[in-house]
Nucleic acid binder design. Structure first.
Lengths: 227, 227
DNA sequence: CTTTTTGGAGAGCACCGCTCTTGTACCCGG
DNA sequence: CCGGGTACAAGAGCGGTGCTCTCCAAAAAG
């Protein structure tokens, strides 16, 4: 009964969406740190107290934006690395490049999810699920690739890798061997570092327009994975 | 004439140091986002307006803390990777491990310098100089190592690498070949990503106690560099 | 039609960064 | 040694913040 909504329920959904839209707009405009509930209310012509009927706290609003950002990043990486006849290496580098492109296009959203965490903030199940999309997409690409030199994995690492494949149940990443999971996680953190360094100004005065550096780094990442 | 200080100058220096100490204390306590000038003043029994005689703005106070953090991190990496007969690989992995240990011990300081930048903040010469210490220390270790497969560097990258060695004039990192500079920068961003992922909660539910993962990642980093 | 629920608006609390004014203590030159 | 200029702490205050409370109108439920 999706059509049988009372006027109130319709209004509630619409206003929730509008608040989220205004918050999104303000996020891309001034960043998460400067995002204020009062400004969102102002943009919509509401009293600030009214917004709290829809999002109990500023953090709840941020959480919704975090999920959106994770989903946007995950979708970008997934579509860029889909299994469509290309080689594993091409799919992997395309996924990495998509990750960087999305981050460059949405710097505040990227900072929101991969920058310093908000002081009192605790991620819940929704955010961790959404946050897994992008790394799992890359892991799915690697899942069928030959596991490089099968160095014996320490017990802790093997067990943690098993946790990852368990979380990926149902997806193609489930097939990844523990060695590949660990290598994939390394590659993912390296990619995070590459993009974060660029966006957070760590490359200023050195590899500043970072396109060439990022391209080389992604290729080197693929090399290191034996692709 | 360091002893010939007027009472005012002495008081000024002491109070500046005390303010910085209180700010440092509050930073490690509640993090940069929640650091407030008023709380610093409260901790010292001052009026908040008095603090502004010593630091013109909250950002100025943060800048001082940023320089401190960069210096602490740089010193840790430098001492851990000093040239004392150990192999290049050992010095490199020790430097990487020191970087992670420092970050784990000082999470808020690490987030301050390598997390999402403060909205309106612009780093000045002091911060960039201090910020170069740690990566340059690692580059110094790599400087004399054989440059891996000498893949022809794109012109942009070669020129940017030259900028790095120029900035390292006088230090041992100056001797690094462009290929080594690029490889070192890749390793540095990878290390940043590794530590950031751990500290910022990106590894939650997967490689959560990250000691084993970090150790494996650092070894892999050394492998990839051909050490 | 009455009662209950819902969602606005507005005032208010405690905090923030920062500025301005005011009164005092110090420093220095005559 | 003492008067003028200056550095400085304090306090009030401005405009902003997140969030809570009360109040009231409108919608839903009975």
């Amino acid at each position: 009964m999706s059509a049988a909504l009372t006027a109130r329920e319709r209004a509630r959904r619409e206003l929730t969406a509008e608040i989220l839209g205004a918050a999104r707009h303000q996020l891309t405009d001034v960043g998460a740190a400067a995002l204020s509930v009062r400004a969102v209310a102002r943009e919509l012509g509401l009293a600030s107290s009214a917004v709290y009927r829809y999002f109990a706290t500023r953090d709840a609003l941020l959480t919704a934006l975090i999920v959106e950002a994770y989903d946007g990043l995950g979708a970008a990486v997934e579509t860029a690395s889909t299994d469509d006849g290309r080689s594993t290496r091409e799919r992997f580098t395309a996924g990495c490049t998509a990750m960087r492109s999305w981050a460059v296009a949405h710097p505040h959203e990227y900072a929101l999810v991969h920058g310093s965490p908000v002081p009192g903030y605790r991620g819940d199940a929704r955010t961790t699920a959404a946050g897994s999309r992008a790394p799992l997409a890359l892991l799915a690409v690697l899942a069928d690739a030959a596991p490089g030199p099968a160095s014996a994995l320490p017990a802790v690492l093997a067990e943690q890798a098993a946790r990852v494949t368990a979380a990926a149940a149902g997806g193609p990443a489930q097939r990844a061997s523990p060695e590949v999971v660990v290598a994939g996680a390394r590659a993912w953190t390296a990619l995070l570092g590459l993009v974060s360094a660029e966006l957070f100004g760590q490359l200023a005065n050195t590899f500043d327009p970072a396109d060439a550096f990022a391209a080389a780094a992604v290729e080197a990442l693929a090399d290191d994975l034996g692709l």
